[in-house]
Design a binder for these strands. Structure first.
Lengths: 135, 135
DNA sequence: ATACGTGCAAACCGTTTGCTAAGGG
DNA sequence: CCCTTAGCAAACGGTTTGCACGTAT
């Protein structure tokens, strides 16, 4: 069988992800983890994030064409993404159970979960654009 | 200024996308368009899909998948995605205006749009999995 | 002692881009 | 005619993988 080992690298990746609320990309998390483990490779970060998600200790925030982000908060919650810089924040709104209920009623899928994402331009990027236009 | 030209390629890409309700990837659409234009390249399909989206004649379905999918239906509507095969279908449920309203109230973003996606396993994949497990 | 995990670099894969030729307006 | 667009192939960027060594159990 398969015995999972708690290596230093895995532990630090998990700990640092759980500390963050910034929905980091693998690369961002890699930079952070390097403060504690300078030699850790990006591949190891990816592999451990994958394992974390498998185990249900984290989740991927996947948008095609952008960098994948990871979230140490596995409760059901929604996100706001900046269309320009890609940063993701939590959206303070209660989940709508109707979404999965409707899906169960009307689709033949075995429903697993649902995702809601608001897309907008964050204040920082708004200012940048204004500057760029005004120049 | 900039004058957009209606080439044969652009026209066929648009026409074929509008015919479909299957939310194809660029590659899938490329295969279909090739029946009418055997020499068309995947780059041309990508470029024209990008233009279609800019013009508001199509939209990208970018939530939770590796491959980007495109939708010729630009009205606000939600999707169900199979976590196994990646296929996307429309979800017959009325949009929730509260989602964007809440975002406008509680975030400082300039809200542009929102996306809702139910993730599940489609019947086909369910059977495949069962077969695989039973075999 | 025995695999599982790591670091490294190369492979991968969907998407984008630079270039040159073609053709729409 | 001019300038956008197409086709081709190479580049790109994030993610994954093969390999040999290291290390937790």
């Amino acid at each position: 069988m398969f015995t999972r080992r708690m290596t230093k690298q895995r532990q630090v990746v998990l700990e640092e992800l759980k500390k963050l609320t910034s929905h980091p990309t693998a690369e961002e998390l890699h930079q952070i983890v390097r403060h504690r483990l300078p030699g850790i490779s990006i591949a190891t970060v990816y592999r451990n994030l994958e394992i974390l998600c498998e185990e249900g200790n984290a989740q991927k925030i996947d948008v095609a064409g952008t960098r994948r982000r990871f979230d140490g908060d596995t409760s059901t919650h929604y996100h706001v993404r900046c269309a320009r810089c890609g940063r993701v924040e939590d959206l303070p709104i209660d989940p709508f159970p109707q979404i999965e209920e409707t899906a169960r009623k009307n689709c033949k899928h075995r429903v697993l979960t649902h995702r809601v994402e608001v897309v907008g331009i964050c204040p920082d990027c708004e200012h940048l654009e204004r500057d760029a236009l005004t120049f």
